[in-house]
Design a protein around this nucleic acid. Structure first.
Lengths: 340, 340
DNA sequence: AAGAACCAAAAAAACGTTTTATGTTTCATG
DNA sequence: CATGAAACATAAAACGTTTTTTTGGTTCTT
């Protein structure tokens, strides 16, 4: 019958040992004789004792809390990643304290301060950037940061992304191989490295084949923005194919083309996305896309951050997870009489 | 230039005051003269001092941490709610520590223990149930629990849900008003109160009109499960209309009917969902559904939990937020020659 | 048999705050 | 001018642990 607030002192009293003996029994590293361990464990379970993590954190400096900074969760990729992240960390005895950055990055500094107030042992910044000064400050305080799905210009940081450049490159080559000539691009938020790298790879491949992007509009990674961008793009002239900077926008693009403009996909226009969120495989969209291997990205992120927390001195690293093209039914060979 | 680990003692030294003076300047309630406050603030900002939340939590008993227990995030309703929840709490100076319960509820007890180890000030259990004993234990420890989107049998707890019974009732009446005769139901996870109440309300309305449910299959709230359930249901005979226990499954049902069975929605079958997640309004689905007002549900949840944390003694309450039917294009009047 | 060497346990220090008890100063009031 | 009440500041206790230091009892060596 567990009472309200049981401390190690009371367990010690019941077990007839010192308070520090209780502590040692409950700390993995420490040593205690079999006898005392037995007595302590018995008393503890009798009283329903559980160590106070906060008190432990105070003196040991280990809060077992990792701060997660995230801007939004409406792109399905993030809840999915969050779920895995949380599970994996949980298995290692860490937990995520969640901080929403909101759409504007203006207050990231304040939020990071709040995180540090909780003495988080590490920070995972998902789809959020950070001033070099701020990142430097965390580093100095011994709080490792890993950027998840966002790379910093500053190459002295850790980041885990898919290979966005290669992904974009592959998409362009694939669309060219289908015989498409007028290939357009719908961009995400201009200041995101994911956006930038995907487009750079995409353009590099086009250039290599002596082509250039047929049209371009900005969707800012939002559903509504993508619809607007689609209209702009089509006004400039109908493309054969559109590469959309992520799946979340691609769905909006497909809906707009199909239901607003009565165009057929892939008959009139081929569409390629990026992420391979679960919805992409749903028959309603069956979206050809580039897979971000969420599992691997999460594992790597956790591996890096835990290693740093446990004192390993790693060299700053920009991990890029291989990102394969998943071909579905939103793309088809170009069957139009090309160039008039 | 902020140094590594600044404590109130060092600020006190620089400001030429006692350490407790520093504390009082940084605790909202406490009083301090303008002069000292000024000196302290200056010294603090010079050193980059920020109070250690964990240390504060130790002595004051206020961790400003709220535990969020959640089973899964693939139903878009939850990330959406989580985002709002986190933002609202953040504004009030609380933060969410996330715990994934996983699919099996077997280990909920352990997870709640872990939460308590962190001295969370309250627990929000989203789409997760809890043994009466466990809930009782938290109560006794002074840690309030609010069940979000899940009601406990035990009416001595707090819960916030939409009015699932009324919602289900409305759906049945609406489908009947469209002239449908063969109305089937795809259930969620059988042990969820949301599932139970929606179906109960639905059946009550059918009964009232001297009808009964034409067919029933269980989808367990999963995408794949819903596809299987759809096949089972259709094998039993094609319904005029299907009420699906949530949107997440309804999308799968629609996809299966349309792309696997080449049926038209709403031409051959009308579909109604529950939740009104953002995807429901996308043209690809344009799903008629019952709206759960996530904003209101979140506000109420936060209101209740914060009030209890701050010491108000509320009566246990089962809040049911009004849940309006949102009619879109997945439903239409029955145009079939009825009953042969 | 005496000292070293070890070991388990206990005692005490530390972590960085808030809170309580105790002083001190100021200031108005009789 | 003395007095009591505010108002503020300080010192010290407390929070519940881990970690370091001290203690005391064995066992081993020589």
């Amino acid at each position: 019958m567990p009472e309200s607030k049981i401390t190690s002192v009371e367990v010690a009293r019941l077990a007839g040992v010192s308070q520090s003996a209780v502590s040692r029994v409950f700390t993995p590293g420490a040593s205690a004789s079999k006898q005392t361990a037995e007595k302590v464990r018995k008393a503890a379970s009798e009283l329903g004792y559980r160590p106070n993590v906060l008190a432990r954190a105070m003196v040991s400096g280990k809060s077992r809390i990792i701060g997660l900074l995230v801007a939004y969760l409406d792109n399905q990729f993030y809840p999915d990643a969050l779920e895995r992240l949380s599970s994996v960390l949980q298995d290692q005895g860490y937990h995520l304290l969640v901080f929403m950055a909101g759409k504007d990055a203006s207050n990231v500094d304040n939020i990071v301060d709040e995180m540090l107030d909780y003495r988080v042992e590490g920070i995972i910044a998902a789809s959020v950037s950070m001033s070099a000064k701020l990142a430097e400050r965390c580093q100095r305080l011994g709080v490792p940061i890993v950027f998840f799905n966002r790379e910093q210009n500053d190459k002295t940081r850790f980041s885990v992304t898919s290979d966005n450049y290669a992904g974009g490159y592959t998409v362009a080559e694939y669309l060219l191989s289908l015989g498409h000539k007028r290939i357009s691009y719908i961009a995400g938020w201009e200041y995101a490295s994911t956006q930038f790298d995907r487009e750079a790879g995409f353009n590099a491949a086009l250039t290599k084949h002596n082509m250039q992007c047929f049209g371009r509009a900005v969707g800012n990674f939002t559903h509504e923005g993508a619809a607007v961008a689609t209209r702009q793009l089509v006004e400039q002239g109908l493309p054969d194919a559109i590469f959309v900077a992520n799946d979340h926008m691609a769905f909006s693009v497909m809906d707009t083309l199909r239901h607003e403009m009565s165009l057929s996909i892939p008959g009139d226009v081929s569409i390629v996305g990026y992420d391979d969120v679960p919805i992409a495989s749903w028959p309603a969209y069956s979206l050809t896309t580039v897979r971000q291997r969420a599992n691997q990205m999460v594992s790597k992120t956790v591996e890096i951050i835990v290693a740093q927390i446990e004192g390993e001195a790693l060299e700053p690293l920009q991990i890029k997870i291989d990102a394969p093209l998943i071909v579905r039914n939103s793309t088809a060979p170009n069957n139009q009489t090309t160039s008039a």
